[in-house]
Protein backbone atom coordinates (compact mmCIF):
# COMPACT_ATOMS: atom_id res chain seq x y z
CA UNK A 1 0.00 0.00 0.00
CA UNK A 2 2.92 2.34 0.67
CA UNK A 3 4.87 1.11 -2.34
CA UNK A 4 4.25 4.13 -4.51
CA UNK A 5 6.74 5.41 -7.08
CA UNK A 6 7.25 8.96 -8.35
CA UNK A 7 4.87 9.99 -11.11
CA UNK A 8 5.04 12.79 -13.66
CA UNK A 9 2.13 15.25 -13.72
CA UNK A 10 1.14 15.31 -17.41
CA UNK A 11 -1.99 17.42 -17.34
CA UNK A 12 -4.03 19.24 -14.72
CA UNK A 13 -7.83 19.36 -14.87
CA UNK A 14 -10.56 21.02 -12.82
CA UNK A 15 -11.02 20.35 -9.10
CA UNK A 16 -7.44 19.15 -8.48
CA UNK A 17 -7.79 16.23 -10.90
CA UNK A 18 -4.71 15.35 -12.93
CA UNK A 19 -3.37 12.86 -15.43
CA UNK A 20 -0.10 11.30 -14.31
CA UNK A 21 2.46 9.07 -16.01
CA UNK A 22 4.02 6.20 -14.05
CA UNK A 23 6.74 4.93 -16.35
CA UNK A 24 4.36 4.72 -19.30
CA UNK A 25 1.18 3.88 -17.39
CA UNK A 26 -1.23 6.83 -17.33
CA UNK A 27 -3.77 7.35 -14.62
CA UNK A 28 -6.15 9.98 -13.20
CA UNK A 29 -5.29 10.99 -9.64
CA UNK A 30 -6.10 13.84 -7.26
CA UNK A 31 -3.69 16.68 -6.48
CA UNK A 32 -5.91 17.94 -3.65
CA UNK A 33 -3.10 17.38 -1.12
CA UNK A 34 -0.39 19.06 -3.23
CA UNK A 35 -2.32 21.94 -4.81
CA UNK A 36 0.82 23.70 -6.04
CA UNK A 37 2.01 20.75 -8.16
CA UNK A 38 2.27 21.85 -11.79
CA UNK A 39 2.49 20.00 -15.08
CA UNK A 40 6.03 18.67 -15.42
CA UNK A 41 6.47 18.17 -11.66
CA UNK A 42 7.04 14.74 -10.13
CA UNK A 43 4.80 13.70 -7.24
CA UNK A 44 4.52 10.68 -4.93
CA UNK A 45 1.10 9.13 -5.45
CA UNK A 46 -0.58 7.08 -2.80
CA UNK A 47 -3.90 5.29 -3.32
CA UNK A 48 -5.05 7.84 -5.87
CA UNK A 49 -3.79 10.97 -4.12
CA UNK A 50 -0.46 12.75 -4.58
CA UNK A 51 0.97 13.33 -1.10
CA UNK A 52 4.26 15.08 -1.83
CA UNK A 53 6.11 16.89 -4.57
CA UNK A 54 9.67 15.84 -5.41
CA UNK A 55 12.28 18.58 -5.23
CA UNK A 56 14.82 18.13 -8.07
CA UNK A 57 17.56 20.07 -6.25
CA UNK A 58 17.28 17.93 -3.13
CA UNK A 59 17.30 14.76 -5.25
CA UNK A 60 20.47 15.97 -6.99
CA UNK A 61 22.11 16.63 -3.62
CA UNK A 62 21.31 13.11 -2.38
CA UNK A 63 22.64 11.55 -5.60
CA UNK A 64 25.80 13.63 -5.29
CA UNK A 65 26.21 12.30 -1.76
CA UNK A 66 26.11 8.70 -3.05
CA UNK A 67 28.66 9.39 -5.76
CA UNK A 68 31.01 11.56 -3.67
CA UNK A 69 34.62 10.46 -3.88
CA UNK A 70 35.60 8.84 -0.60
CA UNK A 71 38.21 10.56 1.48
CA UNK A 72 41.51 8.73 1.54
CA UNK A 73 41.66 6.50 4.61
CA UNK A 74 43.61 8.17 7.40
Amino acid sequence: MCLAIPALVVQRFERDDALIDLGGVRKRVSLALVPDAAEGDYVIVHAGYAISKLEPEEAAKTLALFAAIDEAPA
Partner: peptide
Protein backbone atom coordinates in the same frame (compact mmCIF):
# COMPACT_ATOMS: atom_id res chain seq x y z
CA UNK B 1 14.92 15.41 1.59
CA UNK B 2 13.65 15.27 -1.99
CA UNK B 3 10.16 14.59 -0.62
CA UNK B 4 10.19 15.17 3.16
CA UNK B 5 10.40 18.47 5.03
CA UNK B 6 10.53 19.11 8.77
CA UNK B 7 6.87 20.11 8.93
CA UNK B 8 5.41 17.76 6.33
CA UNK B 9 2.30 18.42 4.28
CA UNK B 10 0.41 21.26 6.02
CA UNK B 11 -2.73 20.80 3.94
CA UNK B 12 -2.92 17.07 4.62
Amino acid sequence: SRAVTRDGNARA
